[in-house]
Design a protein around this nucleic acid. Structure first.
Length: 644
RNA sequence: GCUGGCGUAGCUCAGCUGGUAGAGCAUCUGAUUUGUAAUCAGAGGGUCGUGGGUUCAAAUCCCUCCGCCAGCUCCA
């Protein structure tokens, strides 16, 4: 028997017989390791523990400490799901069943829909099969034989036809189940300790809506029950923070059936929060050298034809309206309007850069199934600005855009974020607009700007918009979710379409570079993200009501109103709960409304000119002179402190 | 738009296999004047999302439309 050399992660080498299996080597190292082993990595490639190694190789045994092992583990759980479904509903056809970010799914084709009760039954069956301790076994099959074998499984045939070489691998699970699959898998079903099926959904075959719709079962699996429980708890937490729920509980906004879906009504309290968000942004625009403009909500179809939206974005626009003189359309974007302002007079290089900013409300037609609270709507307000500049100015402009974006994140309490730089394909496909020099200039400027700011950035090749490269900033919220937020995009197309120019030092007309940037993206969406990030507990500067005065009895009503007036005069958003109710009730309701400060006033406070301060997070803070409290809360408001 | 689920009082929800509506909270009225998360009592309030159908009889069964939810597809 020839011998091969296995190099372990610690660098040590071990000679073994060719054809040895990772599991044998693991056993030789330590029985404990063999017991914990889930999958192997041979020369960097994931291997089943039972797959023979034929040549010299590096070997790593992966256990439940490895994220890659978790993927394999979940993939195996998906097979377990498929096996359970086939035992219960043999007529079902299998699609694909990969691991995903937080679990796995499997797609099925079946004439009748799965019900929630089926889901429970399936999960029960999975446990049963798991307890049979069936091995996942890798089988190499020829394509020809495979097509014959899977003749009555149309999706598998399609996959084998498309993906398989002369041979392909499949995995068995017990005597009856076999699935076309690249693998690898954990050695046996008993390794799968903790899993749960979560939901049923429709999903198109191969993700294409022209294809047949299948039934997808989502589930998740973790190495331990504890981790699974933690994950389920996190889902619960996310549910509690749902901005739609909080929006109702805190009376911030609503969506009205009578008005239509995807159209947001900000109530007084939500309006107050939104005003803080918008005022901050407008103030920043001015400080950072942007000019604030206002533009209409509709324009003639001719404008949209010039901009190209009429043809290329028409699907997403509200239908045209006929007026006496022409067709008009609601704006889905602000860019053409800002361009018209730029173009309204001749520009000199001395005028550049021109930065036109607006909180512009746009309307987009979204298909009926896609609306989602504040996060996906049909009418929304962009903090939109367009920068027109000369090539030599571009890098500085990008740097300040990105600085602006990062400052915005910090202001609203987001500490973690990532940036993505989307670039073109160097012209390979011809699907991108603009000259190669333009692309190079723009991509270089974006890349340099990020390195000047030490911004960690992931390059996404061939992900650019067709009209130019872009940088997107994504934030990580309080419970670790990633949200797309700011975007800084080049646009080579619109300046050309509208014939934009400026007169340069050489006396000739040149085309300016145009950058489109939005930092909140959409004020509505940002509001929703913020609401979930803070779980409704807004920092004092954003809270709709910052303090509420709670008189203990009606005797202190006059004093309570004096306190209210004092704070109100100092610009604090303050209210009095003047109902003849017990202070316990008033406190409870103020707590539920997440009001930062409750100022309890009884006879003692009225006599000494004090308030008994109760903080929503830290409870009773004791009595203090009104002016002391005022100074403190003012400081928190002015500093936009993230938390009190 | 597609698949599945759902739509009962302002809110959260109950109402089994058809016999024509109920709770808690909220609201209003009265009493209570209370020291850090729910005082007590009484009252009012629903064309059971919409329109149609089956039936002696529909919140309950069937169909249409509207909306919501979970996904898919598409996106700020």
């Amino acid at each position: 028997m020839p011998r091969i050399a296995i190099t372990l992660p610690d660098g040590s080498q071990q000679p073994v017989e060719a054809g040895s299996r990772p599991i044998d080597i693991a056993k030789a190292i330590s029985p404990r390791l063999a017991d914990q082993a889930l999958v192997a990595k041979v020369n960097g490639e994931l291997y089943d523990l039972t797959r023979p190694i034929e040549t010299d190789a590096t070997l790593q045994i992966l256990t439940n400490h490895d994220p890659q092992a978790l993927e394999v583990y979940r993939h195996s759980a998906a097979h377990l799901l498929a096996a359970a479904v086939l035992e219960l509903f043999p007529e079902t056809k299998l699609g694909i069943g990969p691991p995903i970010e937080n679990g796995f799914y499997y797609d099925f084709d079946r004439p009748t829909a799965f019900t929630p009760e089926d889901l429970e039954q399936i999960e029960q069956k999975m446990r049963e099969i798991r307890d049979r301790d069936l091995p996942y076994e890798r089988v190499v099959t020829s394509k020809e034989e495979g097509l014959r074998k899977y003749a009555d499984a149309w999706m598998k045939c399609e996959l084998i036809d498309e993906r398989a070489g002369d041979t392909f691998t499949e995995y068995t699970l017990g005597p009856h189940f076999i699935d076309f699959c690249r693998g690898p898998h954990v050695p046996s079903t008993s390794k799968i300790k903790a899993f749960k099926l979560l939901s049923i959904a429709g999903a198109y075959w191969k993700g294409d809506e022209r294809n047949k719709q299948l039934q997808r079962i989502y589930g998740t699996a973790f190495f331990t029950q504890k981790e699974l429980d933690q994950y389920l708890q996190k889902l619960e937490e996310a549910k509690k923070r749902d901005h739609r729920k909080l929006g109702k509980e805190l009376d911030l906004f609503s969506i009205q059936d009578l008005a239509g879906p995807g159209l947001i009504f900000f109530h007084p309290k939500g309006g107050t929060v939104r005003r803080q968000i918008e005022d901050w942004m407008r103030d920043q625009y001015v400080r950072r050298g942007y000019s604030l403009v206002y533009t209409p909500h509709v324009a003639r179809a001719d404008l949209w034809k010039t901009s190209g939206h009429y043809n290329f974005y028409g699907e997403n626009m509200f239908k045209r309206m006929e007026l006496d003189d022409a067709e008009y359309q609601l704006k889905p974007k602000n860019c053409p309007f800002h361009i018209l302002i730029y173009r309204d007079r001749q520009r000199s290089y001395r005028d550049l850069p021109v930065r036109l900013g607006e909180l512009g409300t746009v309307y987009r037609y979204e298909r009926s199934g896609v609306m989602h609270g504040l996060l996906r709507v049909r009418g929304f307000t962009q903090d939109d600005a367009h920068i027109f500049c000369a090539p030599e100015q571009i890098e500085d402009e990008i740097v300040s855009c990105l600085e602006f974006a990062v400052d915005t994140l910090h202001t609203f309490g987001f500490e973690d974020y990532e940036a993505e730089l989307s670039t073109w394909d160097n012209g390979a496909s011809g699907k991108y607009d603009g000259a190669p020099e333009q692309w190079k200039l723009a991509e270089d400027a974006l890349a340099k700007a990020t390195s000047r700011l030490n911004l960690k950035v992931k390059v996404m090749p061939d992900e650019a918009a067709f009209y130019g490269p872009k940088i997107d900033v994504k934030l990580v919220d309080a419970i670790g979710r990633l949200w797309q937020l700011s975007t800084v995009q080049f646009d080579f197309t619109l300046p050309r379409r509208f014939g934009l120019e400026y007169i340069a030092e050489d006396g000739k007309a040149h085309q300016p570079l145009m950058v489109h940037r939005a930092l909140y993206g959409s004020v509505e969406r940002f509001f929703g993200i913020l609401l979930e990030h803070y779980a409704g507990v807004f920092p004092v500067w954003l809270a709709p009501v910052q303090a509420i005065v709670l008189p203990i009895t009606d005797r202190q009503l006059d004093y309570a109103r004096q306190v209210r007036d004092r704070l109100d005069a100092a610009g604090v958003r303050v209210a009095v709960d003047d109902r003849s109710e017990k202070v316990n009730l008033k406190i409870r309701e103020a707590q539920l409304q997440k009001i930062p400060y409750m100022l309890v006033v009884g006879d003692r406070e009225a006599q000494s000119g004090a308030v008994a301060v109760r903080n929503r997070k830290h409870g009773d803070q004791g009595a203090r002179p009104v002016d002391d409290f005022l100074a403190d809360i003012r400081r928190l408001i002015d500093s936009k402190a993230p938390s009190e």
